[in-house]
Nucleic acid binder design. Structure first.
Lengths: 172, 172
DNA sequence: CGTGAAACATTAGCGGC
DNA sequence: GCCGCTAATGTTTCACG
């Protein structure tokens, strides 16, 4: 998985692209002291190996009216919930549908959840939730999270100020 | 701040670009049923108004050997710490250097911290920390976080599995 | 908003180190 | 193997209708 050989030039290319993903190949080539063709070959190799997962535009949440950022810890039912037994007793017999799997599938359908991790500690999941305001957040918690049959506990904290936020990973 | 007028086409352009930031203007124009020039004018307007903050390449943390993702809650000294009084009693007189300001400045210099928010709740700050392994994480906590004079408490949770992670914001 | 033309960028093939 | 040149193709950009 972590077995892609990267030399110093590859790492410089990655550092440049994760700061500005729209630089032309010519610009990048110039900055790493290469001519355009070998530079492009390296970039394509990084893309195909999956080291570069993709290119995106980053938008300003506030300018889109998304003024509330919350981190929500969620704890799930561990066994025997209604949803799970309902699925398990279905025509397919013993399906492998656990509470965690049901919850994960639901998370994928909620656009306000921009990140979700299974976590160590007291809570099972940590969600990052981006919404317009507290009214929207309240509706999300009531109608989606607490309404979900696998969820048994929810704890929210709100961002007062985001003073560091980067998609750039630390490249050794 | 949230006062930029966006019509349906602008929103479609944003939705496209936050999924694929390297599409050519021609491709985007085609998808929104516009010819290249007005499409480019819209994109430039979105860039200049700051709705589009920038373009980046997203890298694969695991393929770069960054196998450990932690969320760290940090609580700070509220008044009278050594660092603060030292600065306040400096030659410039009463500087406005609080514990929070000292901590924020330190966070900016730590590359393993990829996000940091001031938060509501028991803890003052939430950090997202991306490192190679537990040995690196341990060193970061001991040598950077706990070593910082303003920090009085640290609680860490670790990601077992990231099953949703997007930079794409929900556009209404 | 769309057209067209100039400037610029990407990319495949080939020869050289 | 990896580099750099060239030349064809495709893209961006801007003045103008």
């Amino acid at each position: 998985m972590a077995s892609i050989e990267l030399d110093a030039i590859d790492r410089r290319i990655l550092a440049i692209l994760q700061e500005n993903g729209r630089l032309s190949n010519q610009d990048i080539a110039e900055r790493v002291n290469l001519s355009p063709s070998p530079c492009l070959r390296r970039i394509r190799r990084l893309e195909e190996s999956g080291v570069i997962r993709g290119y995106v535009a980053l938008l300003d949440a506030q300018k889109l009216g998304l003024d509330l950022l919350a981190y929500v810890s969620v704890r799930l039912e561990k066994r025997g919930g209604l949803a799970v037994t309902a699925v398990r007793e279905g025509p397919a017999g013993r399906a492998g549908t656990t509470h965690a799997e049901l919850f994960r599938a639901a998370v994928q359908t909620w656009p306000e959840v921009v990140a979700c991790h299974a976590m160590t500690g007291d809570m099972d999941f940590l969600l990052r939730v981006q919404v317009e305001d507290m009214a929207h957040f309240s509706r999300f918690v009531q109608d989606q999270l607490l309404h979900h049959p696998s969820v048994i506990d929810v704890k929210s904290s709100f961002s007062l100020d985001t003073f560091k936020e980067t998609t750039a990973l630390p490249i050794r």
